[in-house]
Structures are given as structure tokens and as C-alpha cells.
């Protein structure tokens, strides 16, 4: 299996650091991009930064739920809107990153098609397994 490219979208520097180190230790992950907010993510997405990589593996997006200005859910919904307008699927695998198990959030995630799952902070081996199973 080829390395999975990752974009982690999180406003908290420690949380991004933890994800980066965990994925590095787990192995099987390629380049890890860090983005600090939803708006920046959407801009870079439109610019074409997160197309499928050379091997055709879709990017993994780890999206923090709780962010100022544009929340994680709002970012995904905007992404889906843009994809629909352009009539091309985004081709990304999105997982929500969160420290809370708020049932309202989980229900929201279930409603959004692009979201393939939930990973709890801090990212641990169980979380990594969840990710891998999406790519299996």
C-alpha cells in the first residue's frame, strides 16, 4: 500500500504537532500538510494543492471540529458546495478530529456525505487503525 498523503486542519499548534508525530511514528503516511483554519484550507484546495498525489491516492483530511470563524463542519459543507458547482467530486477522504464526544456533533457528521469517520484527540493507535481501514 502506498503512503497516504495528509492535510491536518486545526487551529491549535500542539494538536497539529501531536498528529504529525503520531502519523510519522505509525508509518505509512506520506507528506503531512498543516493548515490553521478552514478558509485557508478552501483556498489551497481551490488552488489545486490537494489533488490526488502521483500514485492516485486520495488525500486524507483530518478536520478539527472546533475552530473559530469557519468551523470544521462549515468548511466541509463549503467544500461540498464548491465541488457540486464545479461538477467534480473532491476526491478527498475526510475524518473529523475532536476531543469531545458530543452526540450532536456526531449526528451532524453522519449527515455529511464527505465525512467518512471520526477520530478522537489525542490521535492514538486506535485512531490510526481507523484511518488505515478507510484506505484498505
Amino acid at each position: 500500500m502506498t503512503d497516504i498523503p495528509v492535510v491536518v486542519v486545526d487551529d491549535n499548534v500542539s494538536d497539529r504537532y501531536i498528529v504529525r508525530r503520531r502519523l510519522a511514528k505509525a508509518g505509512g503516511f506520506g507528506e503531512i500538510f498543516e493548515v490553521t483554519n478552514g478558509t485557508e484550507f478552501l483556498e489551497r484546495l481551490t488552488r489545486g494543492d490537494f489533488r490526488r498525489d502521483a500514485q492516485g491516492t486520495p488525500f486524507l483530511i483530518l478536520m478539527d471540529v472546533n475552530m473559530p470563524l469557519l468551523t470544521g463542519f462549515e468548511t466541509i459543507l463549503e467544500m461540498e458546495r464548491k465541488a457540486q458547482a464545479a461538477n467534480s467530486p473532491s476526491g478527498l477522504v475526510v475524518m473529523m478530529l475532536t476531543s469531545s464526544s458530543n452526540p450532536q456533533d456526531m449526528a451532524k457528521a453522519a449527515e455529511i456525505g464527505s465525512i467518512k469517520g471520526y477520530v478522537f484527540k489525542p490521535l492514538d493507535d486506535e485512531g490510526v487503525q481507523k484511518i488505515r481501514s478507510l484506505y484498505a
Binding site: N12, S99, P122
Partner: peptide, 20 residues
């Protein structure tokens, strides 16, 4: 939730890395 749980999860993550 935000000021306790979130920081605690960051702290846990960092301390786990510390042990390793």
C-alpha cells in the same frame, strides 16, 4: 468542554509522546 477537555487531550497526547 473547550477549556478543560480540549487542553487535557492535548496534554495527554504530548505526554504520551514524552514517554516514547
Amino acid at each position: 468542554s473547550h477549556d478543560l477537555k480540549a487542553p487535557l487531550s492535548s496534554i495527554t497526547g504530548l505526554l504520551n509522546l514524552c514517554i516514547e
